[in-house]
Amino acid sequence: MNRGNERLISLLQQPGSDVQVRIANSIWSRKGKPFHSDFTKANQAFYDAKITELDFNSPNAPDTINDWVNKNTNGKIPRMIESIDPMEVLILMNAVYFNGGWKKEFQPSATKEESFKLQDGSTKQVQMMTQSGSYEYLQEEEFQAIRLPYGEGQMDMLVILPDESSSLDALHDKLWEDPNRWHESFQSNRGEIKLPRLKIEYSEKLKEPLKAMGMTLPFDEVHADFSGMAPVPPNLFISAVTHKTFIEVNEKGTEAAAVTSVHMAGASAPIDEPFQVTINRPFFFAIEDRQTDAWLFVGSVVEP
């Protein structure tokens, strides 16, 4: 598994011209708390992780970690943590930064103010970008899907728009029934795409959602087993998981960053007519690598 991740990280960071992908990992341990050398060496060897022993009691400790986050997200996520709990002995950080120019840029002169329908039925005026061309496109009864390539085409943005008679929730159910189908190529067709400019920041505590999904044992103070990481006692368990994301989509391309921290304590039929996709209601998107089928970022936009 370690070697597989090492290969994946290497491939993702070779996205072709006009696209930048940076994946960074770091481990911050409380000064004086020993961890197994096999654990730290594996993280350095396979994940290129920065390993640092840090005085968690120092008032400057959060700033030291936040400086690393800020640097590795190109300033898009300047702060990740405000304080360190006295019981915490290890903080793991994972940062992903993406900056991709569209293979075909949108012309700013074609961007116009249009209405975007929100989930409560009201509308909001947004700056809607427009372009025409040939794209991978898929249309089925309940949705339209299109791929907008970055750079040389190795990476793209997949956009899936539910039909007006459907909903984002229904799309999610269909999406996760068989995620593999979304990695297949769509047929190339000519048409027009209208996409709103986006600038979104998202932050969430993930402990309770992860537990609800069935990941309960790692959070259990008594039964969690991380003895492969450090001598016991004390018994290690995950005390918090935090995720932050920033994404901006404009006429030139997409810039995105995400950081996750883990705190540990003691085929359709051909389409002859040109299509039109107008993203003027809640939709799903993914920034994907076609070489590995990996999704670097996924999200649903309910209000641009």
Rank of each mutant, 00 (worst) to 15 (best):
D63N: 14
D63G: 12
I65N: 04
I65R: 04
N66Y: 10
N66C: 10
N66S: 10
D67T: 10
W68A: 05
V69N: 02
V69A: 04
N70H: 13
N70S: 14
N70E: 13
K71A: 07
K71I: 10
K71W: 06
N72D: 03
T73F: 08
T73Y: 11
N74F: 09
G75C: 05
G75T: 10
K76V: 11
K76A: 06
I77A: 01
I77G: 01
I77K: 07
I77F: 02
R79K: 15
R79H: 14
R79Q: 07
M80W: 02
M80L: 13
M80F: 06
M80I: 14
I81K: 04
E82Q: 14
E82T: 15
E82Y: 12
E82F: 05
E82H: 15
S83K: 09
S83C: 04
I84G: 00
I84T: 00
I84L: 10
D85H: 15
D85E: 11
D85K: 14
D85W: 04
P86R: 05
P86M: 07
M87F: 07
M87Y: 11
M87K: 13
M87H: 10
E88S: 11
E88G: 06
E88W: 05
V89P: 00
V89W: 07
V89M: 09
L90F: 08
L90C: 10
L90P: 02
I91G: 01
I91T: 12
I91E: 01
I91R: 01
I91Q: 01
I91Y: 03
L92G: 00
M93D: 04
M93V: 15
M93H: 11
M93G: 04
M93C: 07
M93W: 07
N94P: 01
N94G: 04
N94K: 09
N94D: 13
A95G: 00
V96A: 00
V96Q: 06
Y97E: 06
Y97G: 09
Y97D: 07
F98Y: 12
F98R: 06
F98G: 06
F98E: 07
N99H: 12
G100F: 08
G101S: 15
G101A: 10
G101V: 12
K103F: 13
K104W: 10
E105P: 02
E105Q: 14
E105I: 14
F106E: 08
Q107V: 11
Q107R: 14
P108C: 02
P108M: 03
S109D: 13
S109G: 01
A110K: 15
A110G: 01
